[in-house]
Structure formats: structure tokens, C-alpha cells
Amino acid sequence: MLGRDSRLEVDLGFIKLKNPVIAASGTFGYGDEVAEFVSPSFLGGFVTKGLSIKPKQGNPPPRTCETACGMLNSIGLENIGIERFLKEKLPKIKAYNTAIIVNIFGESISEYATAASMLKGVAEISAIEINISCPNVKKGGMLFGTDPKLSFQITKAVLKESDKPVIVKLTPNVTDITVIAKSVEEAGAYAISLINTITGMAVDIERRKPVLGNMIGGLSGPAIKPVALYMTYRVVNSVSIPVIGGGGIMDYKDALEFLIVGAKAVQVGTANLVNPKACINIVEGLNQYCTEKGIERLQNIVGSLRTE
């Protein structure tokens, strides 16, 4: 059955995925919306919309804007809060045969820790992803992810309050991403995922106003893929914990590029917005690639980049 081909299996050490394709936070809702189109069971895993202790209403619209080969968003982490997620969403999504990764954020270190503690003991959750990289909120978010000390402290605080493996999602909006990567590894992160969106803006020349209600937003889509790939390559070569790479992946070929530079798994984000079947198409493509190239285990190509 599709998605179950053993050639695609990934062992991240703390969690086994049936394939390396993970739907990224913020592009897959809470997992129930997209089920009308395609079963999330085909995925290696999916990451929920970022959740906070209390519901958050997000930024004023307009919140999205198309750009060359991509889009800007300034959603501002609108979410229903952890309590409602556990009560209303989890019962619907726990039946899916896939890894459920819950993305959390807060405005302070203690809020991150509290968010993590609220997920304690919930067996259906495979891992927590810490968002220290959202460019669209004034407090928290990227502020933490651009500071190696704060990144370290948040990772530590969450690990202390959590009984789950912890993945830290990094922002590309830094001078040297390997500094942050090393600090979260040192703090004990199980894995690193990257990249979140790149800060950007767009101007409406008729009104001479920012297109986005929040003025600035995060750039995603194929436009950022080369940057994401480069950063993944650099992080893979600076830490020894597993790296989940992504940024602008649209098809299986894009996914392969990330695997070849050393990511064990990939996150697919904006592609889901354009085509709800994007992830499933990537899984199919990877299967086909294995067949065509006679690859027995796709993980064998991870980090196989030939640099000479």
C-alpha cells in the first residue's frame, strides 16, 4: 500500500516514520481539514498549526500575498489553544496512522514550558516541535530563535516539562544558523527542523501601503528553496542530531535534494496550500525513484552529496 513501502522508512532515533514526508506546521491545519481530500495516513507525519496555552486571534488581514514563485504570510499564529486542540481536534486525528507532531509556541520561556506540560501524557502525540522562528509575532517567536542563549533556555525548559521527543524549528533570519543549531543540540533537542519563513514585505503601489495588514510577513514557496537547502546543508554538517529539512519543496525531486544534502526527513509546507495532494504525490514520486534507481532503502541516499 502507498505510503507503507518499507524502502521509505525513516528512523529518527526517537521516532520511526513510514516515509520521510512530513506536512509542515501552518499548512496542514490541525490535520482534520485536509482529510476531506486525502488521508493523512499516507504521510510520514504532520505538524499541527502552532499552538499556545490560550487561543490566539492572529494578525489583522490581509494575511497573505502572492510573490514571485511563492507567497508572503502574516497569519500571526492564530490558533484555538492547546485545550481545545486536545478536546476537539485530537479525537478526530488520532485515528490516522501517522506521526502527530504538535507545534507549540509562547511569549516567554515559561509559556513554552507550560505549553509542553499541557501535552504531557497524551499518548497520541509522537513529538513536540518548538516554534522559535515565527517572524509574524511581536513577542516571542523569532526573537527567541535568533538568540543562541534564549534558544538554549527554551529548549531546556520544554525538555524539562515534556515527556516527548522535542524538535526545534529554526529561523533562517540569522547571520549564522549553525550557532543556533549547536545551542539547541547542546540543550538536548532530539532533532532540528528548518527552515521557517524568511522575513519579507510587499508594497501596494497604488495606496503606497504595505500589502499585508501586519506590514511584514514570512516568505515561503519555491522562491526560498535554494536558501533552505543551503541552510539544511550547513546545519547537517554542524550537529549530530537528526535534521528535518524543508523550505519550498514542491515535488519529490525537491525532497530528494534535501535528503541528499543530509536531511533524514523533509517538511512540505506551502505546496499543501496549492495542492492538498502535494505530500502524497511526493511519497509516490520517492517510491518511483527508488524503483527506477534500484534503491533498497531511501535513507541510504541521506547525506550522499558528492562534493568532489
Binding site: 486571534q57 494575511r63 497573505t64
Partner: peptide, 22 residues
């Protein structure tokens, strides 16, 4: 009508302010 990215309820981009919130 607002600017939509996905149209499926995934991204929460196309919101409008209502008396019950966005």
C-alpha cells in the same frame, strides 16, 4: 471576498473580522 492562499481552511490567511472573532 478576501485574498485566499489555499481556499481549504488550512492557512487561515483569508480571515474577516466578525463579532465572534476572525
Amino acid at each position: 471576498e478576501t485574498h485566499m492562499a489555499c481556499g481549504m481552511g488550512l492557512c487561515q490567511g483569508c480571515v474577516v473580522k466578525t463579532k465572534q472573532g476572525y
